[in-house]
Simulated assay, not measured.
Amino acid sequence: MSAPGKRRVETDVMKLLMSDYEVNLVNDNMQEFYVRFHGPAETPFAGGVWRIHVELPDQYPYKSPSIGFMNKIFHPNIDELSGSVCLDVINQTWSPMFDMINIFEVFLPQLLRYPNPNDPLNGEAAALMMRHPKEYETKVKEYVQRYATKEAVDAASGKGETGEDSDGDAEMSDMGSISDDE
């Protein structure tokens, strides 16, 4: 990574660390970390807490970051199993003018507020949203209650009731993909 690129990563990650977001670096590496993200108010995702995995490529900020939801979410533009996000601003129209804080303050909240069922990663969520909006909203809320509670995120990140890191946070290799065994 070039010196300006490294400096940009450090600047963007420091902005996140100094924000209200809870950020956990993986092995003190500023190119890979987890962010605790809260669902936007006045949406079916309100009250939900997700653990977002972020990886910054060596070409950052000229190449977009990789973003993934670690706990399940029911949304037309988020793959339920992998947690991958289908978001134009991250996948196609990313610009070096954007920084990491934009993703958590603007892009992800807007994605949850205004899903695009015409470009789905989760066909079931897209179909339900278009055909039966009330049922879609009910299912989103069920997922929030089941998979996106503070307790679910703490369990996924290896934190105990005290909120302190347990040994489970040191090795994240088992969190590479979300299993479907619940």
Rank of each mutant, 00 (worst) to 15 (best):
P133G: 07
N116C: 09
L111G: 02
I52Q: 05
E164I: 03
P96S: 06
K134C: 07
E137T: 13
L87A: 04
E32W: 04
D167T: 11
Y60A: 04
V23H: 09
N24P: 00
A170T: 14
A156Y: 13
E10M: 11
Y143Q: 01
E182C: 09
E135A: 15
Y143M: 01
S179A: 10
I90N: 09
G163R: 03
K141D: 02
K72L: 10
N29C: 08
E22L: 10
S173T: 12
E124C: 03
G160P: 09
R51D: 09
F107C: 00
D58H: 14
V49F: 11
L81I: 14
V13A: 00
K159G: 08
I73T: 08
V23L: 01
E142P: 01
V89F: 07
D99L: 00
T162Q: 07
M18G: 13
A3W: 11
V89S: 11
G47N: 08
E55D: 07
T93F: 13
M172C: 09
F69T: 01
F107D: 00
N29V: 03
M130K: 12
P76G: 06
P40Y: 06
A152C: 07
M175A: 13
F45E: 00
F98Y: 15
A3P: 08
I103V: 15
F74A: 00
A156L: 14
D181C: 10
R36S: 11
P61H: 04
D154I: 02
D88N: 14
D180S: 15
